[in-house]
C-alpha cells in the first residue's frame, strides 16, 4: 500500500493530469512514448495489486469489527473492566483502520488506469518501436478509463422479459480506446483503431423461495482495424487469402498501395484482448506484400 502511495506521489504533475483526464494522447518518439507508458504501467500494476489486497483486508477487518461488537454485547457485566481496557479501544482502532483503508481504496480507485493500457497498448507499441527509426514520431490516443465508464454508455434497452427472468435490461457501452498512426522505417504508413462494444445485461428473476436474484452478464465485441499504406517503390502487393476471422481490402494507388484489415472478436469477459490480435492484424497486412525489388548493394 505504502509503495503504491509512494509511486503515486512520485508521478509528475503531467502524469497525474493524464490519469485524471483519462486520456493519453500526443505525438511522441518511440522511446519517449514507452518511457512515459512504462511509468504509468508500473504505477497501475502496483495500484491494482494494492487495491485487491486492501479489499481483502477491509472485508477481514469489517468482519472482525462486527464480531467484536457481538462479543461486546454478550460480555457479562463483570467483565466491564476488560471491555473498557481492551475491547473498546480495539474496536475504535479497527474502525479507524477501516476508514483509513476505505479512503485509500477510494483514492486509488480514482487513479486507476484501464488494463487495456498496460496489457495491450504497451506490448503492441513496444513491438512497433522495433519497426521505427528513433527520430520518427508516433501519434497515439489511448482512453485510460474503464470500459464501463458512465461517459461511454450509449443506450439502455427498455426492460423486457426473457425465460425465467422477468426483467432484463441491456446497456450498451462504446469504447473506442486505442487509436494511432505512424510512419515505419520501411516507409510504410500504419494506422490502427481498436474499439470495444460491450453489452451489459442485467437480469432479474424471482426464485422458488420468492427471493429476487439479479445476475449481470457482459458480452464484449472487439474490433481491430488497421490500414497499412506501403510505397510501391519498395513493396509489391500480392493479395492472398485473408486470415480466418479477418476482412481484407487492397487498394492500389499510383505511389502507394493500401491494405486494410479488420478483425473481430467476441468474448463474454471484460478482460483485455490478447495483444496478439492487434499484432496479427498488422502482420496479416504485411503477409499481403511481396519482398522488395533488389537494388545493387
Amino acid at each position: 500500500m505504502f509503495d503504491t502511495l509512494r509511486k503515486l506521489r512520485e508521478l509528475s504533475p503531467a502524469e497525474r493530469e493524464t490519469i485524471a483526464s483519462g486520456r493519453f494522447a500526443g505525438d511522441f518518439t518511440p522511446d519517449a512514448l514507452l518511457d512515459q507508458m512504462r511509468t504509468l504501467a508500473r504505477f497501475d500494476a502496483s495500484n491494482d495489486t494494492t487495491r485487491a489486497s486492501l479489499k481483502k483486508w477491509l472485508w477481514a477487518i469489517v468482519l472482525l469489527t462486527f464480531f467484536g461488537f457481538v462479543a461486546l454485547k454478550f460480555l457479562p457485566h463483570s467483565d466491564s473492566l476488560m471491555r473498557a481496557v481492551w475491547i473498546v479501544p480495539l474496536l475504535v482502532l479497527e474502525l479507524l483502520l477501516v476508514i483509513a483503508m476505505g479512503v485509500t481504496l477510494w483514492r486509488l480507485r480514482n487513479v486507476d488506469i484501464g488494463n487495456n493500457f498496460r496489457q495491450v497498448a504497451l506490448p503492441f507499441l513496444a513491438l512497433l518501436k522495433q519497426d521505427m527509426d528513433p527520430n520518427q514520431t508516433i501519434t497515439v490516443r489511448i482512453d485510460l478509463r474503464d470500459a464501463l465508464h458512465a461517459s461511454k454508455k450509449k443506450r439502455s434497452s427498455t426492460p423486457y422479459a426473457q425465460g425465467a427472468y422477468h426483467r432484463v435490461v441491456d446497456t450498451t457501452y462504446l469504447d473506442p480506446w486505442f487509436h494511432g498512426k505512424t510512419t515505419l522505417a520501411d516507409g510504410s504508413r500504419l494506422m490502427w483503431t481498436v474499439h470495444d462494444t460491450i453489452v451489459k445485461s442485467t437480469r432479474t428473476k424471482k426464485t422458488a423461495s420468492r427471493k429476487t436474484k439479479t445476475k449481470t452478464r457482459h458480452v464484449k465485441r472487439s474490433q481491430v482495424a488497421i490500414a497499412l499504406s506501403v510505397p510501391n517503390k519498395v513493396y509489391g502487393v500480392a493479395r492472398g487469402p485473408a486470415q480466418p476471422g479477418s476482412k481484407l481490402a487492397v487498394a492500389a494507388g499510383a505511389k502507394r498501395s493500401t491494405i486494410k484489415l479488420v478483425r473481430k472478436l467476441k468474448t463474454q469477459s471484460l478482460d483485455p484482448i490478447d495483444p496478439a490480435l492487434l499484432v496479427d492484424a498488422v502482420s496479416g497486412a504485411y503477409r499481403q506484400i511481396t519482398a522488395p525489388a533488389r537494388s545493387a548493394a
Binding site: 500494476a45 513491438l127 504485411y286
Partner: peptide, 29 residues
C-alpha cells in the same frame, strides 16, 4: 518482463516468427 523492454520484444519476435509469420527483409546484408 512486465515492462515490455527490448529483451521481451526479441523473445516475442522469436516466438512469433516460429509460430508461422515470415518477416519481410528489406536490408542488403
Amino acid at each position: 518482463d512486465t515492462d515490455y523492454g527490448d529483451n521481451w520484444t526479441y523473445g516475442y519476435r522469436h516466438r512469433y516468427y516460429n509460430s508461422g509469420y515470415s518477416p519481410i527483409y528489406t536490408g542488403h546484408h
